[in-house]
């Protein structure tokens, strides 16, 4: 997918520059763009490391299990077929917690584990309601602390990198509500 997009971007800019006579600007842009990427990575590395460092400590200090226990009642209502206290429920809670804390790298393996456990509880075949709902939860962003975003905004010189958080939370919540509503309506018509 990205292969086609990327090749397309390069070819389109070549054609466009030929048509507009901006060839010299284009040839400059190749290397300034690459240079930009390195500068950006350096600029965001500090903030990024600070966040991942603090969150690692938070995990060990019990933030993860605290959040997981807060989430558990909600998860039970959302995944009715799920065995209470079972492996699937545990993995789902851990995945959602990692998402909330912005630990994207940890969230995916736990999510895959959750899918395996949910599939097992469903008899190993087909897509259960629980599986569908869990994936939809994951397609909506549940981050309380979008770490990469904060680092990027700080690198770009934002006065308050995190002042957009409330706006993000509201937008996230609305988008999650819309996604779940559509899924519930679909469930009603398709069993």
């Amino acid at each position: 997918m990205l292969n086609v997009v990327w090749a397309g971007m390069i070819l389109i800019s070549l054609i466009c520059a030929l048509a507009t006579g901006k060839m010299s600007a284009l040839s400059e842009a190749v290397f300034s763009g690459a240079q930009n990427a390195v500068e950006l990575s350096l600029a965001m590395a500090g903030a990024m490391m600070a966040w991942t460092g603090f969150l690692k400590a938070a995990e060990a200090a019990g933030a993860t299990s605290l959040l997981a226990s807060i989430l558990r009642p909600g998860v039970r209502r959302l995944l009715p077929g799920c065995r209470p206290g079972g492996k699937a429920e545990q993995a789902v809670c851990m995945n959602l917690t990692a998402n909330l804390l912005g630990l994207g790298n940890a969230a995916t393996p736990m999510g895959i584990e959750a899918m395996h456990a949910l599939s097992e509880e469903h008899g190993g075949r087909g897509v259960s309601r629980g599986m569908a709902r869990f994936v939809v939860l994951n397609t909506a962003s549940l981050q309380l602390l979008p770490t990469t975003l904060g680092a990027l905004r700080a690198a770009a010189g934002s006065a308050h990198p995190f002042d957009i958080l409330p706006a993000i939370w509201i937008t996230s919540a609305l988008s999650l509500a819309a996604a779940l509503t559509v899924l519930f309506v679909w469930e009603r018509f398709h069993g």
Binding site: W6, M9, I12, S13, C16, A29, V30, A37
Partner: peptide, 8 residues
């Protein structure tokens, strides 16, 4: 990607 975007 930044290279391609800056070319665009």
């Amino acid at each position: 990607l930044l290279l391609a975007i800056s070319m665009l």
